[in-house]
Write a protein that binds this DNA or RNA. Sequence first.
RNA 1: GUGGGCGUAGCUCAGCAGGUAGAGCAUCGCGUUGUGGUCGCGAGGGUCGCGGGUUCAAGCCCCGUCGCUCACCCCA
Length: 442
Amino acid sequence: MPLSGFPEYLPAERLAEQYVLDVIRRTFELHGFASIETRAVEPIERLVGSGEDADKEIYGVHRLAARSDERGGSDAELGLHFDLTVPFARYVVENAGKLAFPFRRYQIQKVWRGERPQEGRYREFTQADIDIVDAGELSPHFEAEVPLVVAEIFRQLPIGDFRIQVNNRKIPEGFYLGIGLTDVVGTLRIVDKLDKIGPDKVAALLVEAGATPEQAKQCLALAGIRTEDLSFVEQVRALGVQHPTLDEGLAALAAVIGTGLDLAPGTLVADLRIARGLDYYTGTVYETQLVGHESYGSVCSGGRYDSLATDGRTTYPGVGISIGVSRLLGLVIGRWGLTATRSTPTVVLVALTDEDGRGDALRTASALRARGIATEVAPRADRFGKQIRYADRRGIPYVWFPGAAGASDEVKDIRSGDQVAVDAATWAPPAEDLTPGLVRPP
RNA sequence: GUGGGCGUAGCUCAGCAGGUAGAGCAUCGCGUUGUGGUCGCGAGGGUCGCGGGUUCAAGCCCCGUCGCUCACCCCA
């Protein structure tokens, strides 16, 4: 019985997932990020401390044999981590003496959240994170770097157009303070519903929360600003609000968008309505949607955090971004039907004339594997039609026939039907057949 | 956590005044003792989510329960 929120894929879909993970890993490493893995559990106290009402999402972990009065006793209560940033912050502090700063790491792991599952929302899912953390001060140029790495990954995947929306929390914060609204978080939360409930209802909620109609109108005006270039600065200025925090935010966002314009035009969008992500973000925040699937939710988000990690003497500010691998796959596999070109890594099935030929077949397979060609030997010496069907069912592209009595071996591409005489010591498939690829059904 | 929808074969579904379960697809076998995909024939496979109740009789009605699903909340 499947458990809701704990997805499990069939082999072909898992191969598609691995393909995506391979692209992610290769690109992270290409940009010089080093891999780490942190334990699955953290003391609950640490997990709760970072997020407001994160506690209701946390899965607790304890020994079944532990009596209830032991839980929370001398041993700290443990919970499964709900993201990779909080454990990473702990890891940085613990290992600060052995790490070289600025420290760049990537981390691809499962995380758990105890929320009601829906399409694209799971209780167990995979995130792929990069973060850059420094000791004391973090240079702002890193805030432009991390989303561009993600853009490079997404461009390699068959997911269509995407937009990485960028904002800086200091912009709404300074703006709200500048017009006299002091409940920054509450205002953000309401404005964030804009896409879902529309401007009229947002305005109504803001007024209900204590804003004047004029303030509500100003908030909506700010939230409506979205540009692919630096003109958002002018548009905000035109609203006539003054506050030093607003100035800081505009300068910081302009720097990020400017770098994006220079290096990867069209991928970063300044969008002054987005504010989401966990609440430890202090400046730049990112959120990513696939064009045409905006309502599916963000498939990648992150931001800058100034004081998530601290040992009391030194703080370690960082900036990071997290690809929601499971959510992304939920869309492209679940909704689009994307899958792998075959359900097994096997490139070649070595056919068997009879059981006496198994020894030779195993030697043929070894010769092919020695050159990196994934090979398996037919399970039974069925008639060739069945052996070909064995390959066909699995999407294995080639069947290898042993040559009879001194004749040369032959390999057949069962997609085209082409069959040629070959030598196991030298034959190789075209590069595109070496590993499973991705296919999207018509 | 709150509120709606739905649970029959591996999948999509049918079934009915309540009368002891069916189709298509998939799987497997044979036709085809050695080169598949088409076609033909055939086979296997179900405690009708689970438990209780009403009834001579329940997949169908009633109660409960579990699960799945959608929305809210929140987020990847």
